[in-house]
């Protein structure tokens, strides 16, 4: 089987953000379940955290294509 080993690097770099995004949305769901009226405020915070955690995976994706 042939392929590009840089893609494995992307797989590795996706582990951390995957766990992180899971934790962020778990906390968001917990928060909304406890206090439904705080949903609007929590939503933007959760999406902000999601975007920041996701950045690492995106770096991995781009670098997988850069270092061919």
């Amino acid at each position: 089987m042939t392929g590009n080993i840089a893609i494995l690097g992307y797989g590795l770099s996706a582990i951390g953000p995957g766990v992180g995004i899971g934790l962020i949305f778990a906390a968001y769901i917990n928060g909304v379940a406890r206090q439904p009226e705080a949903r609007g405020m929590l939503q933007s915070i959760a999406i902000l955290g999601f975007a920041l955690a996701e950045a690492l995976a995106i770096f991995g994706l781009v670098l997988a294509f850069v270092f061919k």
């Binding site: 975007a51 920041l52 996701e54 950045a55 995106i58 770096f59 994706l61 781009v62």
Partner: peptide
Amino acid sequence: LTLALRLFGNMFA
């Protein structure tokens, strides 16, 4: 860097 790459990476992928 992250602002540009996030948008690019998501659409590209």
